[in-house]
Design a protein around this nucleic acid. Structure first.
Lengths: 273, 273
DNA sequence: CGGGAACTTGATCTCGGTCAATATTGGTGG
DNA sequence: CCACCAATATTGACCGAGATCAAGTTCCCG
């Protein structure tokens, strides 16, 4: 759909000017070694950078709108972006929470943004022209693999999210959310949630009141405590995990099909060639 | 995570034997021109095929189990596979419905299957060794792009699914499901659902009773009719679409942030380089 | 045909949504 | 620095969509 491998021998105008070792904004970039930039050498980086530039948005500003023609993808260097889908009546599903190192605006759907990107903090990002980005994928295997890798990770995240929303009770979803946000920052001490109760609700498929009640419930269960509404301390990580995710996977080796079935080793058979 | 680009000059043992124009199982494969095989020429195809072989499973058999070490990916040539995640207490979320041309078992999470694959009809598939598959990605840009493309498509699907489960009412979800299954087969006439009510429930985050009631409701609304429980005729596609998806996207140019916000054009500013 | 799986329908209960009233927080200007 | 106000969060009361429990019915498949 969105990726158009280009095998031609590309001789872009911007590339030659930058192949020498000269300073790139990337040299001081917090996102340099993350995500799709990680496998690139100086030259590769230079040609990618030549595609776009740095931009910034204030909290509350929209980066791009789902359904509109896409000019650029963004790799976040600062702040937090949420991607969402909306229904005509205003219902909103937040489908991803993205931070430093994450690529956003990608993938496209028929040349248009699939989701809407919103800055929920001040955001800085590096912009890549959409067509050039795709063309570069077609020329650089490592870059293409890095993109595939990144999208794979997002697919896994999205799928877990679907399971959370589809199967967990309200306070289980909130417990999972807390652990997810803790994981994201990878630092000990209190966890900054960043999302308002309303945004959290739209992320978890609940209402803001239910989210608030679930937080309170977890607090009364002595699993968490609050410094402020946005700053949570995990008191009992083990307990929280049990609530959050009643041990996904590690299944009891039957009941993949709920009722009648004969699991048995998959039988192998050669097909008529 | 799962993709390990390998840039080395590969000289596999099986490759040389197959580079001449000789017959491949692919020549008669229904899945030849679909998905990740599409961009490959005879030689590329030959080396991919050399990685695995054809296999088959009966209805109800498990192809692979989430959390277990992965040996192979499968590209479906016949039948339907559902991928799911399970919770310890038996709750199950079906996260994908895959058919001819789809790759399954991919992506991996730390070398292990992320989801569990189950054949819900008799299934035939072409197996690719997992490491060799990744290595081949690192050698062939077009293949890597095709994989990225495929994963991107699945990400979009997963995200839409998350929105369906997170935001739609029960009968709206079922309406969406019917349209999705219709889309999938791309042929006029009655739509074969393939999933039991229980599987549909696990896909939509409902119970089988609610799914059944929702089907009945849509029937009484004269939007669909049944030849059998598995065979649906869409009587009013427009009406069904309105129920299914109250016009996702095409948003009213505000309310990305529900309350206070000043959308305004994203302001551009150069960062200190 | 016979039996079991799959499906439908009904009665009741409950979790989470809705509506509404405070409480708290944080940002702004006096 | 404090007071004020709007935005955000909490809590309560009530209601309803969907889950749960429980019969029946239909449809396959041997």
């Amino acid at each position: 759909m969105n990726v158009q491998p280009v095998r031609s021998n590309y001789t872009g105008p911007t590339l030659s000017a930058l192949t020498q070792r000269e300073s790139l904004p990337c040299d001081h970039c917090a996102s340099r070694s993350l995500g799709v930039c990680a496998p690139l050498d100086h030259k590769g980086l230079a040609s990618l950078v030549a595609m776009g530039g740095q931009r910034r948005w204030d909290k509350g500003q929209v980066l791009y709108i789902g359904g509109e023609p896409a000019q650029a993808f963004y790799k976040i260097t600062k702040g937090i972006v949420v991607e969402s889908m909306m229904l005509a009546d205003g219902r909103r599903q937040i489908v991803a929470i993205l931070t430093v190192g994450d690529l956003c605006g990608y993938p496209l759907r028929q040349g248009r943004y699939a989701f809407t990107g919103l800055a929920i903090t001040p955001v800085e990002a590096c912009a890549f022209g959409a067509e050039k980005f795709s063309a570069y994928m077609g020329r650089n295997v490592q870059f293409a693999c890095a993109v595939a890798d990144h999208v794979s990770e997002r697919l896994t995240q999205a799928t877990i999210g679907r399971t959370v929303v589809g199967q967990l009770r309200s306070f289980e979803r909130v417990a999972h959310f807390i652990l997810e946000m803790e994981e994201r920052v990878r630092s000990s001490g209190p966890v900054e949630l960043h999302l308002t109760r309303e945004e959290t609700a739209d992320y978890l498929g609940l209402t803001l009141e239910t989210v608030s009640r679930s937080f309170s419930k977890l607090k009364h269960m002595r699993l968490i405590s609050f410094a402020s509404a946005q700053l949570v301390t995990v008191l009992d990580r083990k307990g929280l995990r049990e609530v959050a995710w009643e041990g996904l996977a590690k299944p009891a080796t039957d009941k993949y099909r709920r009722s009648s079935m004969q699991p048995g080793a998959p039988q192998v058979a050669a097909l008529p060639a």
